[in-house]
Design a protein around this nucleic acid. Structure first.
Lengths: 152, 152
DNA sequence: GTAAAAAAGGACACAAATATCCTTTTTTAA
DNA sequence: TTAAAAAAGGATATTTGTGTCCTTTTTTAC
C-alpha cells in the first residue's frame, strides 16, 4: 500500500507529535529507535518533512531536534504523504491504467472508486492531532511507544 | 497501491479472459500490446500465473498460447494477487507495524480496518468472469482493448 | 522426422527504493 | 571563542523491482 518511506514518515511524525514539543525536541536517534526504523534513512525522510516548513519543525545544535508546532498538529495526515510524494494511493487506477476515469473506466473502476474515496477521506479528514488524541486514550501503539495515558 | 507486477498480472488476466478461449489462445506478443506492458517482463509474470495450474492455462508450440478455463474464470481476483504474492495490501498495517492487531492497534487501525475489509471483499468477492461481464456491458477499457459489445 | 512456432527458463542489465557513512553547517553552552 | 551537539547535506552502497535477451523445451504441421 505505502512505501517504507511513507510508513516511516507517518510513524516518525506521529511519534514526534506524541513525545515531543517545542520545549522537548526529539533527536533522530530517539525517533528512529522509537519507531523501529533505520536512523540515517529516517533522517533523510525528516528532511523532506521539514523542507518548506511543512509538517515537522527542526532546530540544529545542542538542545536541537524535531518537534511539531500547534499549527502542524492540525494538518491532515495527507500532508505527510504529500511531503514524501506518496499521494498516488488516493489517485491511481487499481490496474495502473494511464487513462482511467469516469468516462473511460477500467473494469474495476466502479468498485475501487468507493474505496479510494474512503482512503482519501481518511487521509484528508484525520489530523495529526486526532491521532495523538486517539493514542492518548490508551491501548494504542507505535512500535516502541506504548499507548499509555500520560500522567496528569 | 499495487506493484507493476500485480498491475500487469491483473491486466493480462483480464485481457486473456476477454479475448481468449481454449480455441483461441493468445500469444505473449498480442497480450503485451493489448495491455501496454513490456513483453518479456509480462511473460515472466504469466509464468507465475500458470504455475501449478493456478489462474492461467498455457500450451506451447504452434497454435499455442494463453487462455483461461471456465474453472479459472470463476476464481476471485484475489487468486491473481496470490499468484504474484501481492496479498499484503489486504493484510498489512497502514503504518507498516509488524504487530498491529485488535489487541495492539496502531493509531490508524480502527479507521483503516474498514477500508481494508472492503479491499479484501472487492478482491475476494469479485470473480474474473464478473469483470469480463462488466466489460462486455460496454464502455469499459483496458488500454488497447476497448469495451465494445461483441457482435451477437 | 524435420522445421517452425510458441512458451519456459536462465542469465543478465538497468532503475528505483532503501540504507549507510562521512562531512558540513548551525547552534548552544561553557 | 571554542568545543560539543545536533540537523543538513552529499556521496555511495545495497537490495529489490522492473525489464531485456538469448537458449531450451515442447508441440504442431508438413
Amino acid at each position: 500500500m505505502l512505501s517504507k518511506t511513507a510508513e516511516y514518515a507517518l510513524r516518525a511524525t506521529i511519534y514526534i507529535a506524541l513525545k515531543g514539543s517545542e520545549d522537548n525536541k526529539l533527536g533522530i536517534e530517539e525517533i528512529a529507535q522509537g519507531i523501529d526504523s533505520p536512523k540515517s534513512f529516517t533522517a533523510k525522510i525528516l528532511q523532506l518533512l521539514t523542507q518548506n516548513n511543512r509538517v515537522i519543525s527542526s532546530v540544529r545544535g545542542p538542545n536541537g531536534g524535531f518537534f511539531l508546532t500547534d499549527r502542524a498538529r492540525k494538518l491532515p495526515v495527507k500532508a505527510i504523504l504529500e511531503a514524501v510524494e506518496e499521494e498516488s494511493v488516493i489517485t491511481k487506477c487499481v490496474l495502473g491504467l494511464k487513462e482511467c476515469s469516469e468516462t473511460r473506466p477500467c473494469p474495476m473502476h466502479t468498485q475501487y472508486k468507493a474505496i479510494k474515496k474512503q482512503l482519501k477521506q481518511m487521509f484528508e479528514k484525520t489530523s495529526i492531532q486526532q491521532l495523538v488524541d486517539e493514542f492518548n486514550k490508551g491501548n494504542y501503539f507505535i512500535d516502541n511507544l506504548k499507548g499509555v495515558r500520560k500522567p496528569c
